[in-house]
Design a protein around this nucleic acid. Structure first.
Length: 418
DNA sequence: CATCCACAGGAAAACGCGGTTG
DNA sequence: CAACCGCGTTTTCCTGTGGATG
């Protein structure tokens, strides 16, 4: 017993020492390789409010989105001459900086107008997650009255409406509502729009101005034309960022967040080029940057072009595995049945018939009914469309005409889902 | 050149399911 | 409560087809 105790004690001491050393050395090692100084600047969600707007100001001071900003501002300037501009509808793809630009413009416009003794206020209504009519009203009431976090369910809709009307009727001058993702009201967007466009202006004395943001170009067409005519609106389009804009944004982020000694400017160029080719989504560009930083910290302790390449690959892998995971059951089975024979080293292509046989076998194993070959055929074209397989129709002469299915995924992904 | 394979893919019928009406 | 719609999905049926092969 005493022996064992002693042994344990020894072990403990030596073990502790070892681990402590390990922690110390690893810590030093990691610190040495760290590129990231202030991670919050790579993630907008974590940035405190005032800090966020500071960053935004800096971005806009670099003449990014100048065209769009001037469009919005010239839309607003009639207010300075005591005229009320029409409502505006802002279009643009995700990550083109719609929300950010609008908030920036409105807040600066707000202070500018106040200096000239013009009463101007704006409220931001966030509908980024789908909302019902009631929830939209709720959101509106909250933005008007910051003290009240949330109104409970079960309150009649009319009550909410009068609540909002009461809140607004105390105000004077111009009142601007910035409604983000305005197309997100389900199931009856018309109701909400009728309320804000028709009912509200009649009940309150101040001048109302609506700015609706959406990323669906065709949204307008889904609306009732009668409501649409109440908004005598102007359209403003946000183009996606080009490579130069993205580069500026990335530069700013990297200056704030990263150790400049360890950052190669060429890497930023590469990221901006890649992101602008893809979608021009700024959020995606920043995400790629942070991914590249992570790669750099894990390997060389430096952010260069090679790290960006690696991050790109990793992003690609993440995207495809995510895509695969969101597939419907039978689609997943079809995909598996395609790769089932493709992973064998000597087989490079399969025909639809072979894949279908595999598919039937797989369905048998899992005891669910196999879909018809016709349906399978459609699923193959679907998978091809999404780039999960390569399938093209070829003719093998008298041996028939079929789709030739070839792998289009790197092996690590295939292994993962098989 | 005609033949004929093994499937592609269009059309229409059948099914499934939530919602509505008599 | 059954009958009936409406609409999306699935099955059934069918016609079409590129080119190796005899």
């Amino acid at each position: 017993m005493s022996d064992r105790k002693k042994l344990k004690k020894d072990c403990n001491i030596s073990g502790k020492d070892c681990t402590e050393e390990l922690i110390e050395s690893l810590h030093a090692f990691r610190k040495n390789r760290a590129i990231l100084i202030n991670p919050d600047y790579l993630d907008d969600e974590k940035l405190p409010e005032d800090e966020r707007s500071k960053v935004l100001k800096e971005i806009f001071n670099r003449n990014i989105r100048e065209k769009q900003l001037s469009r919005i501002i010239s839309h607003l300037t009639p207010i300075l001459d005591n005229a009320c501009p029409p409502s505006a509808l802002i279009y643009g793809p995700t990550g083109s900086g719609k929300t950010v630009s609008l908030i920036h413009v409105l807040s600066t416009f707000c202070t500018f107008a106040q200096k000239r003794n013009i009463e101007f206020n704006y409220y931001y209504i966030d509908l980024t997650s789908p909302k019902s009519f009631f929830a939209a009203l709720n959101e509106m009431a909250i933005s008007l009255d910051a003290t009240n976090r949330k109104y409970r369910k079960g309150i009649p809709v009319e009550y909410m409406q009068t609540k909002i009307i009461n809140a607004i009727s105390k105000m004077k001058g111009y009142l601007c509502f910035l409604i983000d993702e305005a197309d997100n009201i389900k199931p009856n967007p018309d109701l909400f729009l009728t309320f804000i466009a028709k009912t509200l202006p009649r009940k309150v004395s101040c001048r109302l101005l609506y700015i609706l943001i959406t990323n669906r170009l065709d949204w307008e067409k889904t609306l009732d034309s009668r409501i649409l005519s109440f908004f005598k609106k102007t359209d403003i389009l946000f183009e996606p960022y080009d490579a130069m804009d993205l580069l500026e944004i990335l530069k700013l982020r990297s200056e704030k967040a990263l150790d400049q000694k360890k950052v190669d400017q060429a890497a930023l160029h590469k990221i901006s080029a890649y992101a602008s080719q893809e979608t021009g989504d700024a959020r995606m560009a920043v995400e790629l940057l942070s991914k590249a930083v992570r790669v750099g910290e894990e390997t060389t302790g430096f952010l260069g072009v090679t790290e960006v390449d690696a991050a790109e690959k990793r992003l690609e892998v993440d995207k495809t595995t995510e895509l695969i995971n969101t597939l419907a059951v039978h689609q997943k089975l079809a995909l598996q049945s395609c790769y089932y024979s493709l992973i064998k080293p000597d087989i490079k292509k399969v025909t639809t018939g072979q894949a279908y046989k595999n598919y039937q076998k797989l369905c048998d194993q899992r005891q669910n009914r196999a879909l018809s070959q016709r349906r399978f055929c459609d699923m193959i074209s679907f998978l091809d469309l999404y780039g999960l397989i390569n399938a093209r129709v070829i003719s093998m002469g008298r041996y028939g005409k079929t789709r030739e299915i070839i792998s289009s995924l790197p092996e690590q992904i295939i292994e993962k889902f098989l």
